[in-house]
Simulated assay, not measured.
Amino acid sequence: MIRKPIPAAIALVAIGLLAGCGQNPDSPEENKGKNAAFLVEPQYPSIEDALVDVKEVLKPTTYLNNDFTGKSFDPVPADAPLEPLTVGLSWIANDQFAAYYIAQSKGYFRDAGFEVELIPGGPGKNPIGLLVAGQIDFVSSSNGSALIRLQHSRTGGDAIAVGALFRKYPYAWVGLDPKTPSDQRSERKITAEDFRGQRIGAEPGSEYLTAFTLEQMGVSPDEVEIKRTSTAIEPLLEGAFEFMTCWMDNMPRMLEARGHKNWFVWEFAEHGWADFGNVIMTTRSTVENEPEKISRYLWALSRAVEFIIENPEESAEIVKAAIPETSLTLELIGKRLAYQSDLSLPVGDAPMLSIDPETWERTAAILLYYGVIEKMPPQLQTTSE
Rank of each mutant, 00 (worst) to 15 (best):
S302L: 04
I200M: 11
M251T: 14
S140G: 14
E374C: 03
A9D: 01
K106T: 07
S153V: 07
I92Q: 14
E314N: 01
D74K: 14
L150A: 13
A202E: 06
S182F: 12
M352R: 11
S384Q: 14
T245K: 08
I15P: 05
I47H: 03
T61W: 08
A300R: 01
E187I: 10
Q135L: 05
E256S: 15
Q198P: 04
V40D: 10
M244N: 14
G156C: 06
R228K: 15
F276G: 08
G197Y: 02
E270C: 02
K4M: 03
Y101L: 00
V87Y: 15
V174W: 09
K106I: 10
P84F: 03
K261A: 06
G16F: 06
Q104A: 09
P378Y: 09
I318N: 05
G16R: 10
V57Y: 08
L214F: 07
P77D: 12
V305R: 09
A321H: 04
A321K: 09
L85P: 09
A98W: 02
V305F: 07
V347Y: 11
R199N: 05
A159Y: 03
Q340R: 04
Y169C: 12
S230N: 13
E361A: 10
S285H: 08
Y297G: 01
I128L: 10
I119L: 02
G121Q: 01
E234W: 10
A211K: 03
H260K: 07
F68N: 02
Y171T: 14
M376K: 11
S140N: 15
E207Y: 01
G175M: 04
A8C: 01
P123E: 11
P351D: 00
A338G: 11
N35S: 11
F166P: 07
L89Q: 03
L165V: 15
V224G: 05
E314H: 03
G20A: 06
S27R: 09
E207C: 01
L214Q: 08
A304W: 01
D177C: 10
C246S: 15
V132Q: 04
L353G: 08
A300C: 01
A269V: 14
F243S: 06
Q104R: 09
A257K: 11
E41M: 09
F243K: 05
I136R: 00
S145A: 15
I200Y: 03
E41R: 12
Q381G: 09
A93I: 00
L214A: 08
I355H: 02
P84C: 05
G70P: 13
R167K: 13
N126W: 00
A202L: 14
S341Y: 08
Q104K: 15
S230C: 05
R154C: 12
P28C: 03
R228A: 13
M217K: 02
L130P: 00
P81E: 15
W266A: 02
L255D: 12
I200W: 04
E225V: 02
R185N: 15
S140C: 13
D222Y: 00
L12Q: 11
D356F: 06
I128D: 00
R110T: 12
G218F: 03
L130Y: 05
W299Q: 03
L209H: 15
G22A: 02
D275K: 10
Q379P: 04
Q184I: 06
W263Q: 10
M244R: 12
I309H: 00
F109E: 04
N143M: 13
L328W: 13
T213E: 08
E358G: 06
V40A: 13
H152Y: 07
T382R: 12
T359I: 10
M244E: 14
A365Y: 04
P378G: 07
L367E: 00
S72A: 10
K227C: 13
